[in-house]
């Protein structure tokens, strides 16, 4: 009997996996189908224009392709940027601090860089990137380079007003790679989680040891102040988790008290629309704060 149940359990798991695969395949398919539909619709719209003698595309191809291509890209970038910004404004609320939690093996730097740039473009001030192996922490230079590159690709040279302040704790705590105002990208690893709480606890215990403070004085707000950066960064209001594992995997336990968690199956080949969908979902949820 136990054997039979075991078999049935395996079958059940297989079914769930198939179901998941089917859903994600369907998603991709619908997306590409929509894309193709859009392309065709555009073509159908542009066709009369082309026939009427304003062959913008053709002109670009025939005469002086370089200059025109350049201005076209610049235009495209400008319109994209203003679209993203107005997208951000159209939402009822936007997180000030967003966390990107990658719960997948082998992260893709380009996709994460894209996500970071989109987040900044819609107007989010703080972006934290986390994985539980500390891969991003170890390779933070590579991530930074990728972000700068994607920023130029997606937002153009003028996008450099979105300068990145790149914080990454640990050994190089006081070494900021690019210093400017906002937005701020933070690379987090498990050390920033429980370990930082332990360090704060140790610090408080030391001050008790040196008779600077009594154990009774220790309060939630005191610990909270220690766990914040010197600069005021709010707790993340939204964490987007990528990957099939349903867990925070050690993501900043102290700071996720009121954080909303939204999952996506993967961060690979993620599109702006996926991210915006998540932000829309976040935009409509309400918090009662115990009331």
């Amino acid at each position: 009997m136990a054997l039979l149940y075991g078999l049935l359990w395996r079958l059940l798991l297989v079914l769930v996996h198939v179901n998941r695969a089917l859903i994600s395949w369907l998603r991709v398919w619908v997306k590409s189908w929509k894309g193709r539909l859009w392309e065709r619709a555009m073509a159908a719209l542009l066709l009369p224009l082309a026939l009427a003698g304003f062959p913008d595309h053709q002109r670009k191809l025939n005469h002086n392709p370089d200059a025109n291509a350049n201005s076209a890209t610049r235009n495209r970038i400008a319109s994209r940027r203003s679209r993203w910004l107005s997208d951000g404004r159209s939402l009822e609320k936007l997180p000030v601090h967003i966390g990107l939690l990658v719960a997948e093996e082998e992260p893709s730097y380009t996709d994460i860089a894209n996500l970071v740039v989109w987040c900044m473009a819609v107007g989010i001030s703080y972006v934290s990137v986390y994985d539980n192996h500390g891969i991003f922490r170890k390779n933070n230079i590579r991530l930074l380079e990728e972000i700068v590159k994607q920023q130029q690709d997606l937002l153009g040279v003028e996008g450099s007003k979105y300068n990145v302040e790149f914080l990454s704790n640990g050994s190089d705590k006081h070494q900021h790679h690019v210093v400017s105002c906002r937005p701020i990208v933070k690379v987090l690893s498990p050390e920033d989680g429980k370990q930082s709480i332990v360090q704060a606890a140790q610090q408080l215990c030391r001050s008790v040891e040196n008779k600077e403070r009594s154990s009774k004085d220790i309060s939630v707000s005191m610990l909270d102040a220690l766990l914040r950066e010197s600069k005021y960064i709010p707790d993340p209001e939204l964490v987007v988790k990528f990957g099939p594992v349903n867990s925070t995997l050690g993501f900043l336990p102290w700071h996720i008290r009121l954080t909303e968690f939204i999952s996506l199956p993967s961060h690979r080949d993620i599109s702006y629309e996926d991210l915006f969908g998540i932000l829309q979902r976040y935009g409509v949820c309400q918090q009662r704060l115990g009331q």
Binding site: G193, K194, I197, N246, S247, T248, L249, G250, F251, P253, W254, I256, R257, L258, T259, E260, F261, I262, C285, Q287, G290
Partner: peptide, 16 residues
């Protein structure tokens, strides 16, 4: 979809 200050320390490697 939030933890509302419940077992933050204990669930850092739990299935949510």
């Amino acid at each position: 979809v939030r933890l509302s200050d419940f077992l933050l320390w204990q669930t850092s490697h739990s299935c949510l």
